[in-house]
Design a protein around this nucleic acid. Structure first.
Lengths: 109, 109
DNA sequence: ATTTAATATCGCAATATTACGATATTAAAT
DNA sequence: ATTTAATATCGTAATATTGCGATATTAAAT
């Protein structure tokens, strides 16, 4: 066990969950906020600012890149990371769609 | 290792990440969607509908209850679960605030 | 009182995640 | 050509999560 049974869920549920999951770590939230404030940054900036090892930051950046929410451009010997605005808004939209499924609830219990 | 270093992040970052994290599993997304569609449900309904064991569903319900996004009311020998609308909207709001931090980005790289 | 039904909790095995040191890789600087 | 700097990747240890069977617990039904 320990294996999430993705087969039994819809693609939509799996996709949505995997987006939430990537944002479900404070280091990745901190990275995104830093990139937003600075407009862009390189990996080493983050190593200095957050107190995590270079290998760890690099790994988190990779996960963020995987869902497309950030983009990295090689610039000499460093890589410039910035927000991929289109994907950013797309994800925000997806989340809002999820939260706006008719909650016609009312206090039923 | 394997221990998230929460001390080095702000409370806001930790709180936000932990909310995302709870939504970062397809079973919990599926549970929320089912509750919304049915307006309410009991644990056994979910066991029947999703293909997971009772112990597993109960565990997921507990995590959802922990962040306050659902509420459980004892009703005879079963427990009626429903969406806690207030918290639901609060979380949606928090997420939107996160996504609306000035993304004045523009393609910088 | 006993049985039945619904749920919660415990304990455990399998897998995943987090973090980091060590080691590539690559490009600029000397 | 060598050195320096920035990043990525590999391997590994520590911890967390997922899932489930077994076992409580609790309340209704018989």
């Amino acid at each position: 066990m320990g294996l999430t049974k993705s087969e039994i869920f819809t693609d939509e549920q799996n996709r949505l969950a995997s987006l939430f999951k990537v944002l479900g770590h404070p280091a990745r939230i901190a990275i995104l906020q830093y990139i937003i404030n600075q407009k862009a940054c390189i990996c080493n900036d983050l190593v200095d600012v957050l107190g995590l090892a270079q290998a760890t930051i690099s790994q988190h950046l990779k996960e963020l890149k995987n869902i497309g929410i950030i983009q990295g451009t090689i610039e000499g010997k460093s890589v410039c990371y910035c927000i991929e605005e289109k994907k950013w808004k797309e994800i925000q939209n997806l989340f809002n769609l999820f939260f706006e499924q008719d909650v016609k609830v009312g206090q039923c219990c």
